[in-house]
Amino acid sequence: MIYRAPPADALLAEPIDAFTAVYHRPSGQTHLLVEPAPEILDALGRDGLTLAKLRAALAERYDLTEADDLAERLEELVAAGLVSAA
């Protein structure tokens, strides 16, 4: 399964204290994201990654703990329409 973020011009992101407000242009919906969601979108990019490769990519940049359930976070982003899975 490859997970992909929307094209960069589909999202408008504005940091608001600990959150990132994201406006999804295709749907017109606003999402309020907390880490690691913005980092996941950034790492996935338009080309997309598998869950294992995403975990590896994030581990290079951030201290991932066992508690960071990436699969669950990814599914939330898929459900929100911010990540596509194919």
Binding site: L12, E14, I16, D17, A18, F19, A21, Y23, G28, L32
Partner: peptide
């Protein structure tokens, strides 16, 4: 009140936020 909480409450307090789309998002953030 943290800005993020204000943002959420004001999206609910706006009658036309959803209809305005991107300009509404920019104005509110």
């Amino acid at each position: 009140v943290p800005a993020s909480e204000a943002f959420v409450r004001l999206t609910a307090a706006s009658t036309n936020y959803a209809n305005l789309g991107e300009p509404g998002f920019r104005a509110l953030t």
